[in-house]
């Protein structure tokens, strides 16, 4: 426990947070990677996910892709790209974009898939064009899951961005690797606390954001499927349980 105190002491030492080498700058670098990579991944993954979700084609491929991607070691990809592209920010950024794509892709297509087919049929029945079905029905109703995917990709990138220092890409990992080299455990601890705090704060903000952006009608529907209700109350009231339900 005493070491945790030393970790915090490291954080609050002005020599460690101020200046171009201080942790405030490194923290901003970490955030820049996080939002930069997620933004690029959004441009690639959202249209792709919407395409899969709208047409229903390539769904299994998208699942295998997301599932299989979990096994890809991010450290290995980062270092391989680092050897190829040289040191600096390019290799980390590209690695983080690769990491950020699967959750956003999954969120985008799952959001479309979660829309009730009857709702889409109804939208067509009232004369909406295919494009209107996408923009006015599927995109708004799919929003909660897309934001869930974005949230999860932000978290993965903010965590992995710590490794950027391996290929001289800056960010908070600089302190951790420096601490390993100089056997300065409080420094490693302090930087670890910062990375964790950053991830938790981002998670908190996005959990809140997710609650705010979601249309109210969608929330009402989500609440319903927390637990499947038994049919007994229906049957007990003299109403026959529905077949095939």
């Amino acid at each position: 426990m005493n070491l945790f105190v030393e970790g915090f002491a490291w954080i609050f030492d002005p020599a460690n947070y101020s200046g171009g080498q201080g942790w405030i700058v490194r923290l901003l670098e970490q955030l820049a990677y996080t939002f930069g990579a997620t933004a690029i991944a959004l441009l690639i993954a959202v249209p792709l996910g919407y395409l899969v979700g709208h047409t229903g084609r390539g769904r299994d491929l998208a699942v295998s892709f997301s599932g299989g991607f979990r096994a890809l070691p991010s450290l290995g990809v980062l270092i391989l790209l680092g050897l190829g592209l040289g040191i600096g920010f390019k290799a980390p950024l590209l690695t983080f974009v690769i990491i950020a794509i699967p959750p956003i892709l999954a969120g985008a297509y799952a959001g479309f898939e979660a829309v009730d087919r009857k709702t889409i049929d109804a939208a067509r029945a009232v004369g909406m064009t295919e494009w209107q079905v996408v923009t006015r029905v599927e995109i708004p109703l799919g929003l909660p899951l897309l934001i869930g995917g974005i949230r999860s990709s932000l978290l993965q990138v903010v965590a992995t961005a710590t490794l950027a220092a391996y290929v001289s890409g800056g960010a908070l990992g600089v302190f951790i690797f420096d601490a390993f080299a100089t056997r300065n455990y409080p420094e490693a601890l302090g930087a670890s606390i910062l990375v964790t705090a950053l991830a938790l704060v981002l998670e908190g903000i996005f959990a809140l954001l997710q609650k705010l952006v979601v249309p109210r009608g969608v929330v009402a529907k989500e609440l319903k499927d927390v637990r499947q209700r038994s049919s007994r109350p229906l049957a007990a009231a003299g109403v026959p349980a529905q077949e095939g339900k």
Binding site: I176, S192, V195, T196, E203
Partner: peptide
């Protein structure tokens, strides 16, 4: 239980949020 579901999923969600390298570093402590 509905209550425990919320609490458990929240706590585990937060644990999952801790990045791996820092978690490895915290472990000896």
């Amino acid at each position: 239980y509905k209550l425990s579901r919320g609490v458990i999923l929240l706590v585990l969600g937060l644990l999952y949020t801790i990045p791996s390298l820092p978690l490895f570093i915290f472990m000896p402590l």
